[in-house]
Design a protein around this nucleic acid. Structure first.
Length: 749
DNA sequence: GCAAGGTC
């Protein structure tokens, strides 16, 4: 009989595949590690009957390190960390696992790697091979490829064994070597330089290490960039037309289809146009179904974001509680990138299990009656299903944060498999002369998933009945003013979304990187959960920026990722990418070393600012300080600061196209690095992009004109109305435009 | 005393 050793990435998977391959009949015995058992069974391997031992590691078993002679920070030339030899060795806590492998390998002819089918999994597989081959060089090594732990997937995998992909292994080796060399070199340089210049500060802060990491810095960079965006925000005034109408005792605000304009004169002219004909025609009344979609099945990023925004826990806390719930069997594996349930998965029993709850039991019963209907996303890590409850619990069984996280997982799961919320929206379109307005009403018909998903709200918005073509005479038309507001500071949920989007870290490490830069005092958390950079964080980012190195931007990591992908795709080899990347960082390092005073100068600048009270104090417990404000003193945030009463017709100074354009260019230059990841890209930001505020009308027009078919024509008109502008000529559009083509084209001749 | 990646 063939003797085969199967090794999985974690005990959970070893146990899972054992059960599936043995139909539940397997022996279990202890290994050297308490957490990693050995399961034994008989099955077919490589077309032969085989006795199989199935065991596991716990993630990476080995770590990369410099030799001991590099340990002295004072005597070792830092730059030599770029070419000093490194060695891979079994990590301290993993010795017993390695020993199990050594012992088991001797007894077997074949080794099959069952680690997760992702990049790190392939590399962990190579570590397992190294340890096993050391004790049994004759081992024939195979790789099982599986997309989920189900009977069909596991049986298919065992019938179709392949070999390890050494390119993927190389890519991960390349990544870890670069992370170590770069991290160690820049950490020593920063730490030694800043500590020598500011001994008092770092001693008083008990701040021993000022670390650099390829994930730490971009994470810090996001926080700093948002902070600076707020600090440098130049509020701009805008104006809009508003029509108020009262019917059946309900006041309806008809909003302007143009939304808002940044030129008071234009608004005045358009206001005048409306005043010429003080009647409003109801052009269209449309009722249409509107729904709110239930959430996607929950992956790790969703859990972290929800835990942070709805439960007000840090991502790190959420994950550690979720891991506890997982290890006690309450919920499924919490580190998953999968947001869709596998096709064959039996969800109904999981829903039924919740029927005994006195909080959501009735909802669960209803779901079972109507049919389980999960809303699936399109991401899959091909190893773990979305996060879902495994056992029923109530407030007696769990408490504190464990209960809160469990409740979130259950409510999210039930919401996901139930039904969308549905309602009916009414849109009333109004026209006064050439200007168009609209008002919306909403009638919620069925709250659907929101019955159980208490984290979201959706409510009726009453609107009285309007009839198409009716004419309104009694209404109030006015000009409302407002000021653009800076965006908010990042929340932890925002930060995780950015990291996810730009590929900084993995779903399993986002929370750790954030925690690390908190621990290093690069950022702090305000009372309301918003993240603020500390003076050290600001100084580090600025210091490198001043030298001209984008160390805190996500691009560097993205560039490395491209190299790694090339290795996986066999377009380049490991040596090639390693040489290139080391060379690149070595150049930056040499220059940083010669200009390292930029760092201390930058820190000095922020120390001055802090002592003059111009900088919020964060870190080291002191999370004081309000949010930064724009120079003109941004008042309340959120909704635009709106003027209540009708405004006088005071003429704002006219801004020429040239001056607007100049300002825009300044903005583009200083904010170039932000353009990719701020503003409207994030669903929760309601504010306009910076660009919008500074666009010239001509630019708006250009865009609109090109987009319209037939293209709009610019025509000249003359201001007819009494006033300072009477007789002045302006350019406007020749054709009416509908609401989807928001033309703001207006320009003085 | 340095990183990031696994996982318990």
């Amino acid at each position: 009989m063939l003797r085969a050793l199967f090794v999985a990435e974690k005990n959970d998977v070893a146990k899972g595949i054992s059960g599936l391959l043995a139909n539940g009949h397997f022996n279990r015995r202890e290994g050297r590690s308490k957490f990693n058992k050995i399961y034994e069974l008989q099955t077919q391997v490589l077309g032969r009957n085989a006795v199989v031992s199935i065991t596991s590691v716990s993630g990476h078993m080995m770590e990369l390190a410099f030799h001991a002679d590099m340990a002295n920070w004072q005597t070792v030339r830092i730059a030599s960390l770029f070419d000093a030899p490194v060695q891979q060795k079994v990590a301290d806590g993993m010795k017993d696992i390695a020993r199990t492998l050594t012992e088991e390998a001797k007894k077997n002819d074949v080794l099959v790697i069952w680690t997760d089918c992702d990049r790190e999994g392939e590399n962990i597989g190579a570590e397992i091979v190294k340890v096993c081959k050391e004790s049994n060089p004759r081992l024939d090594v195979f790789r099982a490829k599986f997309s989920e732990i189900t009977a069909s997937a596991v049986h298919r995998a065992v019938r179709n064994l392949v070999r390890l992909d050494n390119n993927i292994v190389d890519a991960v080796d390349c990544r870890s070597e670069l992370d170590l060399r770069i991290g160690a070199a820049f950490t020593r340089l920063q730490t030694l330089h800043l500590r020598s210049k500011f001994r008092d500060i770092f001693e008083s802060q008990n701040q021993k290490v000022i670390s650099y990491g390829s994930c730490q810095f971009p994470t810090l960079g996001f926080v700093v960039d948002r902070y600076k965006m707020i600090e440098n925000f130049k509020p701009e005034n805008f104006w809009r037309l508003l029509v108020e109408h009262v019917r059946n005792g309900i006041k309806v605000d008809f909003l302007w289809d143009r939304n808002r304009l940044f030129d008071r004169d234009v608004v005045n002219v358009l206001y005048d146009n409306c005043q010429e004909k003080l009647e409003a025609i109801v052009e269209k009344v449309v009722k249409k179904p509107k729904s709110r979609w239930r959430p996607y099945a929950m992956d790790t990023v969703a859990l972290e974001k929800l835990g942070s925004s709805k439960l007000k826990m840090s991502a790190k806390e959420v994950m550690s509680v979720a891991e506890k719930l997982y290890s006690k069997g309450w919920i499924s594996y919490p580190r998953t990138e999968t947001n869709k349930f596998p096709k064959g998965m039996e969800l109904a029993p999981l829903v039924e299990m919740q029927a005994e709850s006195n909080e959501w039991g009735n909802f669960a019963k209803e779901v079972v009656e109507r049919g389980v209907n999960p809303r699936n996303g399109n991401k899959s890590d091909e190893a773990h299903p979305p996060i879902h409850p495994l056992k029923f619990a109530d407030r007696q069984t769990l408490n504190g944060n464990e209960w809160r996280v469990y409740e979130l997982v259950v409510r999210h799961f039930l919401a996901c498999v139930s039904r969308d919320a549905s309602g009916e929206e009414t849109v009333v379109n109004l026209r006064i002369n050439s200007e168009r307005f609209h008002a919306n009403g909403l009638c919620v018909k069925d709250l659907g998933y929101m019955h159980v998903y208490v984290y979201e709200k959706w409510g009726d918005k009453q609107i009285p009945t309007y009839v198409e073509n009716e004419i309104l005479k009694e209404f109030n038309l006015r000009i409302v003013d407002g000021t653009t507001q800076p965006p908010d500071l990042l929340t932890e949920a925002d930060l995780i979304a950015l990291m996810d989007k730009f590929g900084i870290g993995t779903d399993a490490t986002h929370a750790e990187h954030i925690e690390k830069i908190k621990e290093r005092d690069y950022i702090g958390v305000k009372g309301d959960g918003k993240l603020l950079p500390s003076f050290i964080g600001l100084a580090l980012v600025d210091g490198y920026d001043d030298m001209g190195f984008a160390m805190s931007k996500p691009d560097l990591r993205a560039n490395l990722e491209r190299g790694l992908k090339d290795i996986c795709d066999r377009n380049r080899n490991k040596r090639d990418v390693l040489t290139e990347q080391i060379g690149k960082y070595r150049t930056i390092f040499d220059e940083t070393e010669s200009k390292v005073f930029f760092l201390s100068k930058s820190l000095e600048k922020y120390l001055d600012k802090r002592s003059s009270g111009n900088l919020p104090d964060v870190g080291n417990g002191g999370h004081g300080g309000g949010p930064p404000r724009g120079p003109d003193g941004g008042g309340g945030r959120g909704a635009p600061r709106g003027g209540g009463a009708d405004r006088g017709r005071g003429r704002g100074g006219r801004k020429t196209t040239a001056s607007r354009r100049g300002r825009k260019n300044d903005m583009a230059a200083s904010g170039a690095n932000m353009s990719n990841y701020n503003g409207e890209d994030e669903a929760e930001t309601r504010r306009p992009r910076e660009r919008k505020n500074t666009r010239t009308l001509a630019e708006d027009a250009e865009e609109v004109m090109c987009a319209c078919n037939p293209p709009l024509q610019a025509v000249q008109k003359t201001v007819q109305k009494e006033g300072p502008n009477k007789g002045k000529r302006f350019w406007t559009c020749s054709l009416p435009f509908n609401s989807s083509e928001k033309c703001s084209f207006f320009q003085w001749v």
